[in-house]
């Protein structure tokens, strides 16, 4: 009797899990981030404040979006999860779109390029967020 063999796509299953979870998290957090950076900050609704470093004794309120990350691990994680989750969700969906438009022949090559760009993007994002978190600046 012929033995059935099936190759379980374990890596794909894990990537799908990240896509699914990352997409859901990004869907919840992205609107919050857009509100904070594109609406709240320019319209002066930014809730954060700090003392003026030039005059520690003065209680000067400064609106500054960098305070979201500087010294705040949770803030850095929030930015990382939102952007990295969105990027990963995007590349996975792009991969699906390649299938849907019938580019099966070129899919593997395009996927590889896409994943490479996204992973480089995520590493760069992590690097700058760590620098921002530790030094208060991304430069």
């Amino acid at each position: 009797m012929k033995m059935e063999t099936h190759k379980v796509a374990k890596l794909h299953a894990i990537l799908w899990g990240i896509f699914s979870l990352g997409g859901m998290i990004a869907a919840f957090l992205l609107p919050v981030m857009i509100y904070m950076t594109a609406i709240a900050y320019p319209f002066g609704l930014w809730p954060f404040s700090r003392e003026n470093p030039a005059c520690p004794s003065c209680l000067t309120l400064v609106r500054d979006p960098s305070l979201l990350v500087t010294g705040h691990l949770l803030g850095a994680l929030f930015v990382f999860v939102t952007i990295a989750g969105s990027l990963f969700h995007g590349i996975f969906r792009f991969q699906s779109a390649l299938t849907e438009v019938g580019l099966l022949k070129y899919r593997r090559a395009l996927e590889a390029v896409g994943y490479f760009i996204i992973f480089v993007g995520i590493i760069v994002l992590a690097y700058y967020l760590i620098a921002w978190y530790l030094n208060g600046t991304i430069t």
């Binding site: 190759k7 379980v8 794909h12 299953a13 799908w16 699906s96 299938t99 849907e100």
Partner: peptide
């Protein structure tokens, strides 16, 4: 059944149309 449905050409080809 799991190895059958979890092959790359099992459920993973579906793009949720």
């Amino acid at each position: 059944r799991f190895p059958i449905v979890h092959e790359i050409e099992g459920v993973w080809e579906c793009t949720l149309v």
